[in-house]
Computed example of a mutant assay.
Amino acid sequence: MPTNASAQYADLSLALSEAGAGRPVLVLHGGGGPATVTGLARHLARTAHTITPVHPGWDGTHRPARLARIDDLALAYLHLLDERRLRDVLVVGSSLGGWTAAEMAARDTTGCITGLVLIDAVGVHIEGEPITDFFALDARGVAEHSWHDPDRYYLDPADIPAEELARRGANMATMRVLAGDPYMHDPTLLPRLGRIQVLTLVLWGESDRVVTPAYGAAYADAFGNGRFEVIPEAGHLPQIEQPDATFALIDAHLRRTDALPA
């Protein structure tokens, strides 16, 4: 990690939830907020020490102006791991959180990260597989692109309380700042992934239309040691639509990375 990272992020206050004991697992949510990984973190806490932050700017938390890109977020979390003196860390990230996890691994100079799980991650440019412009979608379009069964998860904005609509709008505004230009990717990230040699599991919902399974397969191939798995009957958030299948694959990956020699 760059030597100036500690000074840059030492005064950053992070909202964290922690549970369980054992190997440290950092769980990073996507644009939908921390609720999208609550069940996943709860499951992992049965056998690991889970650390689940709220990204600064989500759900009413403060985002300092200097935290303006995903690589800033990645460096902030690397500082957290360094400050806690955590080693043998598995980083699990969903969507935008997966992008952050990949960026963390690419910038990890201390070797504290020993495993990665990316779930329907964004963050790279894949020729011929564009990332859907999420900001241009209405509520129905978001449901159609995000879920295998959109009718089950679609919520008419007219039925959502004003306070919840405001929270979602503020989260989207933060996401636009961090990931809006260039849209949902870092042009430099893809060629850097080959240097990441930790075991990397890339999970993808077969019905994801935000970023397609073909995008995910190319993402996984770019890692030095990547493995790609498709989850049937799931969209952009398989940990919610198909939790049992998703958790089983992550548990197996956790066991594989636990078995590696120190």
Rank of each mutant, 00 (worst) to 15 (best):
A179T: 11
V198M: 10
L203Y: 05
G180L: 09
H185P: 00
P187G: 03
L193A: 07
L190P: 06
L178H: 10
M184E: 04
M184L: 14
P182D: 04
R176F: 12
T188N: 08
Q197E: 14
V202W: 03
G180Q: 08
T200C: 09
T200P: 04
I196L: 11
V198R: 08
R192K: 11
D181E: 15
A179Q: 10
R176Q: 15
L201K: 01
G205S: 12
S207E: 15
G194L: 05
R192I: 01
P182C: 05
W204M: 10
Q197Y: 00
L189Y: 04
Q197T: 14
M184G: 04
G180K: 11
E206V: 14
G194K: 12
L203V: 10
L203A: 11
D186K: 02
D186W: 02
R195K: 14
R192Y: 03
P182M: 06
P187R: 01
V177C: 14
P182H: 06
G194P: 02
H185E: 03
P182Q: 05
H185G: 06
P182R: 07
D208Q: 13
H185Y: 02
I196F: 04
P182Y: 02
Q197H: 12
Y183E: 03
L178P: 09
T200L: 08
P187H: 02
W204E: 09
H185M: 05
L193M: 07
H185R: 05
Y183N: 01
G194V: 04
L199H: 08
T200H: 08
W204S: 08
R195D: 13
G194Q: 10
V177M: 14
L203H: 07
A179V: 08
R195F: 04
G180T: 07
T188V: 07
L201P: 01
R176W: 12
G180N: 11
G180Y: 02
